[in-house]
Amino acid sequence: MTDWTGVRERVLALALAPGSDKVFGAMGHAFALDAPMTASEVADLEAWTGVELPDDYRLFLLHVGAGGAGPAYGVFPVRQEDAGRWRWIGDAPEEVEPSELAELFPGGADPAAATRILAEQPSPEAFDDLADLDAALEVWEERLAEVQYDPRFTAGALCLCDEGCGLTVWLVVTGPERGRMWRDPRSDGMELHPLRNADGSPLDFAAWYLGWLTAAEAACGLVPDTGHAGLGQPA
């Protein structure tokens, strides 16, 4: 379990560091963080979602912030709306539904299903009229999107980060992959896949976030206290 002590202060300090605006995504989040959540708020969030959040992410919410500055364009903040519904706020189109978040994470999409649709792409040679080809391609693209973006493929996972150009990063909250980070490059025609450390081991939320923080500090010429348990890999 990671010690998050001092991490919030380190992130906020980057806003004043020379050159911090050159860190990718900084123009979006400006190294700002939402306030940390209370224990009762986290408990209510878990009751609403029907899942127990991975330890590292729960402690991040309690000691660092409900979201804000982080890898790429930041960690989507989670906030409670007037009706008591919790919502992760971001530019990604995915909306978290409690019924889907509590389901078992299937480990990504079914590549065979997408392969079948890809093989059926309309060929220009089969059409004499360009308008007919465009209409056929539009129908085909809709079918492909329905297969590639079937919400069942990301059930049990939480969309936490926008990397730009439709690329997102997810935290798995159920099943054998619980606590691990997955990347979603479906907008580039690739499949969901797990993120990994340099040694090939699965990347968890703490390593993902703290790795970004250490790299951002290095880019700004800051040298963190490497003796602190919360500065590198999870303790």
Score class of each variant (00 low, 15 high):
Leu137His: 06
Glu142Arg: 05
Arg178Asp: 08
His193Asn: 06
Pro122Lys: 01
Arg143Cys: 03
Gly84Asp: 09
Pro93Ala: 14
Gly175Asp: 09
Gly156Lys: 02
Met181Thr: 09
Gln121Ser: 06
Ala112Asn: 04
Tyr73Glu: 11
Pro111Ile: 02
Ala136Met: 02
Glu191Phe: 15
Leu160Met: 13
Glu146Leu: 09
Leu104Arg: 15
Asp91Cys: 14
Trp88Ile: 00
Asp134Glu: 15
Val78Tyr: 01
Ser99Asp: 13
Arg180Pro: 01
Arg186Glu: 04
Val78Lys: 02
Arg87Ser: 11
Arg152His: 11
Ala72Pro: 00
Glu120Arg: 12
Ala72Cys: 11
Pro106Leu: 08
Trp170Asn: 08
Phe153Lys: 00
Pro124Gln: 04
Asp184Arg: 08
Thr154Ala: 01
Leu158Arg: 04
Leu192Met: 15
Glu95Phe: 07
Ala92Glu: 13
Ala109His: 06
Gly67Ser: 08
Gly70Glu: 02
Ala72Asp: 15
Cys165Thr: 05
Val75Ile: 15
Leu118Cys: 01
Glu141Met: 07
Asp110His: 05
Arg143Met: 02
Ala109Gln: 14
Gly67Ile: 07
Glu95Gly: 04
Arg143Ala: 08
Phe76Tyr: 15
Glu81Lys: 08
Asp91Glu: 15
Ala155Asn: 07
Pro71Val: 00
Val139Lys: 11
Leu104Val: 14
Trp140Tyr: 10
Asp134Ala: 13
Glu120Ala: 15
Gln80Asp: 01
Leu137Asp: 04
Phe127Thr: 01
Ala113Glu: 12
Pro176His: 05
Pro176Gly: 03
Ser123Asp: 14
Gln148Glu: 10
Leu130Tyr: 06
Pro98Asn: 04
Asp82Ser: 14
Glu138Ile: 03
Glu163Ile: 00
Ala119Val: 00
Phe153Tyr: 13
Glu94Arg: 09
Gly107His: 10
Arg79Lys: 14
Phe127Met: 03
Ser187Pro: 00
Leu167Asp: 13
Cys165Asn: 15
Ala135Ile: 02
Leu118Phe: 04
